[in-house]
Simulated scan of single mutants.
Amino acid sequence: MEIKLHDKYFVPFISAQELDFAIQNMAKQIEDDFAEEIPVFVGVLNGAFMVVSDFMKHYTAPCEVSFIKMASYEGTSSTNEVKQLIGINQDLTGRTVIIIEDIVDTGNTVEELKELFKKQGVKHFKIATLFFKPEAYKKDIKLDYIGIRIPNKFIVGFGLDYDGLGRNLPEVYQLKD
């Protein structure tokens, strides 16, 4: 069933079950890799709030969670400029930090985050993203955990929005051709 947000139409793309399966797999992989540590998961707002929420339900080992707010989108296109709107107020020196992203496309936000956390002297810096658009990715930074690889099409739902609408959808829709 297609939906309309503002002036654009979107069609179903990824079901809630597929999303849950991808998030469970990422949580298990990360838990296996960092079982001996207490990682700090950093969700990137606004988009990743639903991913982080579901991820935390599946991650059973001790951990901490925090959020950072970055902005790089206007409408359906990246501005290629990333702004930090809300930062982290804790000392992360010597800690394992795992970024939880909703989506990585150009990689501009990932690059900005890597610089930011490198300055804080973290022990490990890892990136987990529910969605990855390999065709759009322009950086050399390794993504450590990828839930679902998708084509370079605009998507909404499960935290992702089109000019503020669609974040509350439990599944993902893509822009209709």
Rank of each mutant, 00 (worst) to 15 (best):
R95E: 14
F117L: 03
K114E: 12
M70S: 12
K126C: 06
L92H: 06
H124F: 09
T93M: 11
N80G: 10
L92S: 04
D91Y: 08
G121A: 08
V65K: 02
E81Q: 13
V97Y: 01
L92Y: 04
F67W: 11
K138H: 12
N108G: 14
K119Y: 03
V65Q: 02
S77L: 10
L85V: 14
I127K: 01
K119Q: 13
G75L: 10
Y73W: 13
S72T: 10
A136V: 06
G94K: 08
E115D: 12
E135Y: 09
L130F: 10
D105L: 09
E115Y: 09
S77R: 14
T106M: 04
P134K: 11
I100E: 01
I99K: 00
K83G: 02
A136Y: 11
V110C: 06
L130T: 07
Q90S: 13
I88S: 04
D91S: 13
E135I: 04
Q90H: 10
K118D: 13
E135T: 11
E111D: 11
D140M: 07
Q90E: 15
F67E: 04
D91A: 11
G87S: 15
Y73I: 04
Y73S: 09
V122Q: 05
L85W: 01
A136P: 13
V97K: 01
Q84G: 03
H124N: 15
E64A: 09
K138Y: 07
P134S: 07
E135N: 13
T96C: 10
K118G: 04
N80L: 13
N108V: 05
V122F: 07
K123N: 14
R95A: 09
G121K: 12
I127D: 01
E112F: 15
H124D: 14
V122M: 05
K114S: 10
A128I: 00
K133V: 09
K114Y: 08
S66I: 03
S77C: 08
V110L: 15
K123E: 13
S66A: 15
Q84H: 01
G87A: 13
K83Y: 09
K69Q: 14
S78A: 13
V110S: 11
I86E: 14
K69E: 12
D105V: 07
V82C: 07
M70T: 14
E111W: 05
D102Q: 06
F117G: 00
I100K: 00
L130A: 07
K138C: 10
K69N: 11
Y137P: 08
F117R: 03
S66V: 09
K83W: 05
N89V: 02
G107K: 03
V110F: 00
T129F: 03
L113S: 02
F125H: 01
I99N: 00
A128E: 02
T76I: 14
F117P: 02
E112W: 11
K69M: 13
K118L: 12
Y73T: 05
Q84M: 15
K69D: 04
